[in-house]
């Protein structure tokens, strides 16, 4: 990596994980939750998202490019760590390891998920309730999706915590502790939203 860019890459990585990727994740989970109100409601919500103006622009600059940078740089970060939870079994050290492991799981999940839905859509397959229902009809795929959703949501919630530290928002141990509670509540809440949605397709 040329020059003294590491600081800016790390800050950008941290920022992009929350804005826009994290915001997109929350929006995506909320739209999916329409599935709990039946196929009609989900198809209407999905069609609304699909027909947003400047769709390709939004997809490229709000989703794909930030996600790509976050993923590629994230792999580099994950593989420069040397896990030592066996020797140092502290809570934050476990979260440090889980953040990197869920990052990799999330990447595998997202690549597969994008291939199965967005790439197929580009080839003319219709993205609707039936498409997802067909996918999670397979119990293995349902399990894969549940693991993928949980790992994505954990990575986002815990990433929110480290975002607050990395940008210097939470400095005192007390504020970091309180943010641990808040982000874990976010993890549980978003997990419920995500799991309810995927089970609505099954």
């Amino acid at each position: 990596m040329a020059g003294n860019r590491e600081f800016y890459y790390r800050r950008l990585h941290s920022l992009l994980g929350v804005v826009p990727v994290g915001i997109f994740l929350v929006q995506h989970l909320v739209v999916n939750h329409f599935a709990t109100r039946g196929p009609e409601a989900f198809n209407r919500a999905a069609a609304f998202m699909e027909n947003l103006p400047f769709r390709y622009f939004l997809e490229i600059f709000v989703i794909f490019l930030p996600l790509l940078f976050h993923a590629v740089y994230g792999i580099y970060i994950a593989f420069t760590a040397k896990f030592n939870t066996r020797q140092y079994g502290y809570f934050r050290n476990w979260m440090f390891m889980l953040q990197r492991i869920t990052g990799i799981i999330t990447l595998i999940f997202v690549v597969w998920h994008v291939y199965e839905t967005r790439v197929q859509a580009a080839f003319g397959v219709k993205v609707n309730y039936d498409m997802m229902a067909n996918i999670v009809d397979n119990p293995f795929m349902l399990g894969f999706y549940i693991v993928g959703i949980l790992s994505t949501v954990f990575h986002f919630a815990n990433g929110l915590w480290s975002f607050c530290v990395s940008w210097g928002l939470t400095v005192s141990p007390r504020s970091q502790q309180v943010f641990t509670y808040i982000t874990m509540i976010i993890f549980v809440a978003l997990s419920i939203v995500g799991i309810r949605a995927i089970l609505a397709f099954a």
Binding site: R5, E6, R92, F96
Partner: peptide, 17 residues
């Protein structure tokens, strides 16, 4: 703020422990 500096911290917080 240079390479190998502050940004490399991954918040495992083993140091303070």
């Amino acid at each position: 703020m240079g390479d190998g500096g502050l940004a490399n911290c991954g918040n495992s917080q083993n140091c303070v422990q």
